[in-house]
Structures are given as C-alpha cells and as structure tokens.
C-alpha cells in the first residue's frame, strides 16, 4: 500500500484513537464533547464534490452507520483542487443535508397559482419528462433557414451542474446532446 496523506491520516487515527480520550478522564469541551467523539469514532467516509461554485472542491462526508445521516463534512486533503480547504460556504455544506429548515418534499407551484403544493417524486419526475418531451417535439428543427441539416432543439436550455464531476458531466452532456440541445451552460461559466 502506498502511503498517501489520507492513508497516513487514517493510520495515525487508528493507532491514536484508542488512547485519545482516555488520558484526561473528563469531558474535553463543555457541551459538545459527546458529539465530537462520535465524529471520530463511528461513521463511514465517502467522497463527493461541493455543489456551490465552479471550483469543484473535494469533500469527505462522514455518515453515521446507525442513523445513515451525515455527521460531518470537511475538505478532502487528497483532492487536487482544494487539498482539504473549503471556503465559508463549502464549510457549511453539512447543512445541505442536515438542517431542520430544509425542504424534503417536492414543492409544485402551478402556472398562475400563488401557492406551493406538495407532490411526490414520481409525479415530479414524470411531469418533467413529459414536458421536456413536449417542448422537444414542438421546437425540434431538422434544418435551419439556409436549409442546412442541424437537428437541434431550440426551446430547451440547460444551466448549472456544478456538483457534477468530469465523468458525470460527460453523461449529462451526452443526454442533452441526444435530445438536440445546443444551449448548454456549465456552472463554470455562470
């Protein structure tokens, strides 16, 4: 095994964890010591990418294996973009999953309506697919004004996708191109 920085951290964490909290014999921080210990002792680590700006910083998400909820998110020291660093927004990204104010159900506001109604994911995804299909069929152009073959859809655009990595972007791009989209913007240009 090559010892990368990350592996090194893991190794030292394993060797030190046993003796880490025993020495003082009393709680370290006032009110939150319990939660802190959990962060280090339990949990499965997975990597992801920050969804906020175009920089694309790498993150490590620690998930409690019992509750399946995120218990900590921080910069990935092995990620070449940010080398473990995160800005204030990135550092708060934990709340994207764990926040009582977070909306967890689909909210739908019908055209002309002044209020949101709760819908199911099935309903939402089917509705999106239906509308994409309708607009695509309606605005698909085989030829342009000069009678050249273009096979493009002019009524749809895609904006965003900062949270996607390179490979995901490729799949997303392939899907959009197969629909015939030409107006495609990635977060990096917004």
């Amino acid at each position: 095994m090559t010892v990368t920085r990350r592996n090194f951290l893991k190794l030292s964490a394993t060797t030190l964890a046993a003796g880490a909290f025993g020495g003082l014999g009393l709680s370290l921080a006032p009110t939150v010591a319990k939660a802190q210990r959990m962060n280090l002792r339990k949990g499965k680590e997975t990597t992801t990418i920050c969804s906020y700006c175009s920089v694309g910083c790498g993150l490590i998400v620690t998930t409690d294996e019992a509750t399946k909820r995120a218990i900590n998110v921080e910069g990935d020291p092995d990620h070449p973009i940010n080398e473990g660093a995160l800005c204030a927004k990135g550092a708060s990204i934990y709340q994207q999953a764990e926040n009582e104010a977070r909306i967890t159900k689909v909210q739908y506001r019908a055209p002309g309506s002044d209020k949101f109604e709760e819908k199911s994911w099935d309903w939402a995804l089917t509705e999106i697919a239906k509308r994409v299909k309708a607009v695509r069929d309606e605005t698909f152009k085989e030829k342009n004004a000069k009678d050249q073959v273009v096979n493009r859809v002019e009524g749809l655009a895609s904006v965003g996708s900062a949270a996607l990595d390179n490979e995901e972007c490729w799949i997303y791009q392939a899907m959009l191109r197969s629909l015939g989209l030409t107006y495609i913007e990635h977060q990096a240009r917004i």
């Binding site: 921080a29 939150v32 998110v73 921080e74 800005c87 550092a91 708060s92």
Partner: peptide
C-alpha cells in the same frame, strides 16, 4: 471559512 468550519465541527 475558519469561523464556519469551527461551528460545523463542533455542531
């Protein structure tokens, strides 16, 4: 970032 990371780690 430091101010937020502190809050995040310590919840």
């Amino acid at each position: 970032g430091c101010q937020i990371a502190c809050k995040q780690w310590k919840k």
